[in-house]
Structure formats: structure tokens, C-alpha cells
Design a protein around this nucleic acid. Structure first.
Length: 138
DNA sequence: GCCAACGTTGGC
DNA sequence: GCCAACGTTGGC
């Protein structure tokens, strides 16, 4: 099993909305590096859900409910080859894990969230995932 | 609101 | 194929 982190503006689609929906198609990714990570996702993989913008914190977990498929929201102008996955809501964190806290911990110095802040879909290691979940559960 | 980082576009 | 210009993202 692999572990991932996805980033979303809470104004666009907050974690609470994913919880309300149960699951959702993760569409609209138009970046090749992120697309390649989507392609590597397998059903059952675990996902950290990060709120960018004002919040800047990991707020809960999700899981991959359906492996990559053609993004139905990609139009002609976008070209083809874009992918989506389906995510299922996991657990909200009792305590959001702030980006500042992640940056302050050298255990996360290689995390792409820190190193490559603009990437919206990224892999995380087993250890990183476990540690962030532990922090989130308080 | 600003700026840095990065990706994309378009002229050459 | 290179590179400057531009647009977007996201942290501060």
C-alpha cells in the first residue's frame, strides 16, 4: 500500500464536504507531475487531506476508492491524458496538523509539501503518514 | 497584498 | 530548441 497527500483549497472543496459526500471524484488536476502520481494510486491507498490557503493544515484522512481513470472534466483545450481518481472520506483529525508544525519538524524535511509547495498531489512515506496521523489524533 | 517558485506559452 | 514573458499557486 502507498500513502499520499492531496491538497485542496477549503473554499473549493473542504474535507467536511468530502465527509458529507462520502466519496468524490478527484478531478481537475492539470499538472503532469501530479497526474503521474494519480496514475500510481491504487484502490485502498491511504491519503492525507490538506487544506491550502488560509488554513495550511492536514485536516483528515481519506482513501483511494477507485484507481485512475480518464478525467471526465478535461475538455479539448486541456488535451487528453488527464486522470482522476475517486476518494473516500476517512477520519477527520481531532487536531489539524499545521504546515508550520510540519516545517518545524526535521522528520519532514524531505516532504514534498515542504520542498515543492505548489504540487497538489504527492506521495508521502509510510513513516511520514504515520507520524502526521499520530499528530492529528492528538 | 506581495512575492517567490514554478509551469506554460510563444517568438525567434 | 532556447529563453523571455507571462500566469498561477500558495506561503507569508
Amino acid at each position: 500500500m502507498k500513502y499520499w497527500l492531496v491538497k485542496q483549497e477549503p473554499d473549493d472543496y473542504p474535507f467536511s464536504q468530502l465527509q458529507a459526500d462520502g466519496r468524490t471524484d478527484w478531478t481537475g488536476v492539470r499538472n503532469y507531475q501530479a497526474r503521474n502520481f494519480l496514475r500510481d494510486m491504487r484502490m485502498g491507498d491511504k491519503v492525507l487531506y490538506y487544506h491550502s490557503g488560509k488554513e495550511k493544515a492536514v485536516v483528515g484522512t481519506a482513501s483511494v476508492a477507485r484507481a485512475a481513470f480518464t478525467d471526465p472534466t478535461a475538455d479539448k483545450e486541456d488535451g487528453d491524458g488527464w486522470l482522476a481518481v475517486e476518494l473516500a472520506a476517512g477520519k477527520p483529525f481531532a487536531q489539524p496538523v499545521a504546515l508550520a508544525a510540519i516545517k518545524a519538524d526535521t522528520a519532514f524535511k524531505d516532504l514534498l509539501l515542504v520542498r515543492h509547495s505548489r504540487l497538489s498531489v504527492m506521495p508521502v512515506s509510510t513513516d511520514e503518514f504515520g507520524q502526521i496521523v499520530a499528530m492529528g489524533e492528538g
